[in-house]
Simulated assay, not measured.
Amino acid sequence: MIHLHQIDPIALALGPLKIHWYGLMYLLGFAVAWFLGRSRIRAGRLPGVDEHGFGDLMFYGMLGVVLGGRIGYILFYSFGDFLEDPLMLFKVWQGGMSFHGGLLGVFAAVWWWSWRRGLHLMDTMEFVAPIVPPGLGFGRLGNYIGGELWGKPTGSDWGVIFPRALPEQLSNLDATALRTQFESGALDAFARHPSQLYQAVLEGLVLFVALWIYSLKPRPRYSVAGLFALLYGVFRFAVEFVREPDSQLGYLAFGWLTMGQVLSLPLIAIGLIWLWMSRRAPTLQPQLPASAG
């Protein structure tokens, strides 16, 4: 079945103030991470840290996501444009966030927070890993609602028609005319893979369920973070085969290799290394905060 994407990316407009669904998805992701993280803190999954300390970790983590995601996008996907217009770094309303950049930002934030508290970096990473996937899933839903980062043409009788991906003479039609064209079947050939939804399911739902269940019991250091890196890297690498490459980059090699796949390969390698290291690593046992005793 073919679906025509006609979702308003603006959730609420209050005069000149426009609240986009994509921004709300970020807020929802942070809210769920806060809820899940508090439950893990109360269960003593990060010994020596109370809810106040977790609040500090969330603050640094959110800064890492936003700053790292934006800087990563500039470096990985739009560095040439940045050299021509350095101020584009601050034009966040134009879009452009990188998961891999955000991940590096979170890693830096977690390192800083852990160092200040005298905690092992990987113990904090093990704590954080299971609460990240819901935010990834909501972010991909935001991409879908915004009609961006679409997939390749399906070449079949199913998929989603994204107006912004249509030829110019069609993308300029108003909503009513576009609906008429769609109902006549004239747009069926432009149906694409809803790769954003594939990623929402794999990177959000499947990754969360796998990590949450795996981390219910104490696991050796490096194992939970290693599983996160490995699964995300594999999921992202696979979906890139049906996702349209970034227009400013195209394919990097072999007629199929994308920047997303290149950036995912180190994650897969790191995940495997961490899982191997976990075989001889200590297991952090839960310890309820003193206030809960």
Results as ranks from 00 to 15, higher is better:
F138W: 10
L141W: 13
L57A: 13
F127W: 03
F90L: 13
I41D: 15
G146H: 15
K217I: 05
A292D: 11
M277T: 00
W111E: 01
W93A: 07
G44A: 06
A200H: 05
A31D: 02
L4R: 03
R116Q: 15
I131Y: 06
L67S: 02
P286D: 04
V132M: 12
G147V: 00
W21D: 02
H100V: 01
P86W: 12
G226K: 07
L207D: 09
L178A: 06
L75I: 15
W256M: 12
Y232N: 00
F30Y: 12
R117V: 06
I41V: 15
G15N: 14
L231E: 04
I71R: 00
G29P: 05
G48V: 02
Y22T: 01
R140Q: 07
L211W: 03
D85P: 06
L27N: 06
W274A: 05
A189G: 12
K152M: 13
G142H: 09
Y222R: 04
A33P: 07
G159W: 02
Q169R: 12
L202G: 04
I273Y: 11
F76P: 08
H52S: 13
L46T: 00
L12W: 12
L252G: 11
Q285H: 05
A191Y: 04
G55M: 13
G142A: 09
G250E: 07
G95W: 04
P289V: 04
A43P: 08
F35I: 13
F30A: 14
G159M: 02
K18L: 14
L4P: 01
Y26R: 03
L263V: 11
L207E: 08
L149W: 01
G250A: 10
W158R: 01
A200T: 05
D157V: 14
F59Y: 08
A292L: 15
L24D: 06
Q248Y: 11
R40P: 01
G260K: 01
R219T: 05
E168M: 09
A13D: 06
S195Q: 07
L230V: 08
A175K: 09
Q248D: 11
W274T: 02
L173K: 07
Y251V: 08
G95L: 08
E244S: 07
F182E: 09
G55W: 04
A191N: 08
